[in-house]
Design a protein around this nucleic acid. Structure first.
Ligand code: FES
Ligand code: FES
Lengths: 143, 143
DNA sequence: TCTTTTATATGATTAATATCATGTTTTTTC
DNA sequence: GAAAAAACATGATATTAATCATATAAAAGA
């Protein structure tokens, strides 16, 4: 459903929200080991996420990647979209240019409600929301 | 959400259900033109679908691809799965090997219900069901 | 049986993802 | 300021998906 890149990005963003802040940064290398993602690829992804303000970064000694309060307010959907693009999840099942109610394909009415629900949840859940659940041990973060 | 191949396959299977039967076969070339899919690629996909009994085919003059009653009973999910594989839609958002209730990732409980609903609908809807709606002009088939 | 018509099987090419590698810039610390 | 440590930028390689091309086999009809 998602690309590897999006999965890696989500894991990294969630991990950073849980384990870092401006005073506790983390190296790309260490993040990659913790969440089990290829090192060099992780670094490239993190740089892209930082450029788009999904996470924060600092160069030089004592530098690294981290999550600040503003970063924790990004939604899960935003993370997916900066990597996989806007239409990865919303696109038509039959490849129509536009997926909407006005000119729906035969599958649209069938799956649109549940798919929209799922997307709406991803859109309304922030990294902060998730990390709360994790801190309360409601769920665990896999690597 | 789906690969191009799955989208092409769904369009072709639905189109064949509507416009062909054992006495009215259609050439790969013509199908590709009608549903707007690259000719050679369409042919390869149709051959794969025929081998897996998702559609039917006959060689030689008066041959071509078509849909028989048994073909019309395949579900939308089956079509997607023979092309994209079992786990394309069910796989974990964070890349866990198994996505299940027992060891769920932090996103699982959030999206699992709506995603399962969507998959269940794809699994319970046959090509025949869809073509009925199309014949009743409830929806239209895009190309 | 021969020719034509079609799917089938297979492989080649192209494009997109994913992965790896490395030189450059910024920042800290001494 | 010089050295070291980190992200940053960029490009190279590898793998997978998408597309194209063609030779082979089967079926129909003359
Ligand atoms: S128009 Fe095809 S899924 Fe919405
Ligand atoms: S375990 Fe991650 S989505 Fe189900």
């Amino acid at each position: 459903m998602l690309s590897n890149s999006s999965k890696y990005a989500l894991k990294a963003v969630i991990y950073l929200a849980l384990h870092t802040d401006v005073n506790n940064k983390m190296l790309a290398k260490d993040i990659s080991e913790r969440i089990n993602v290829p090192k060099a690829y992780m670094a490239k992804l993190l740089q892209g996420l930082a450029k788009r303000k999904i996470i924060s970064s600092a160069k030089g000694p004592k530098g690294g990647f981290y999550s600040n309060p503003s970063n924790k307010n990004v939604t899960l959907l935003e993370v997916v979209e900066v990597i996989d693009g806007e239409k990865k999840l919303e696109s038509c099942f039959l490849g129509l240019d536009d997926c909407n109610e006005h000119k729906p394909c035969p599958i649209h009415s069938l799956i649109s409600p549940s798919r929209s629900k799922m997307i709406a949840l991803l859109e309304s859940t922030t990294i902060y929301d998730l990390s709360k659940d994790l801190e309360l041990n409601k769920v665990f973060l896999p690597v």
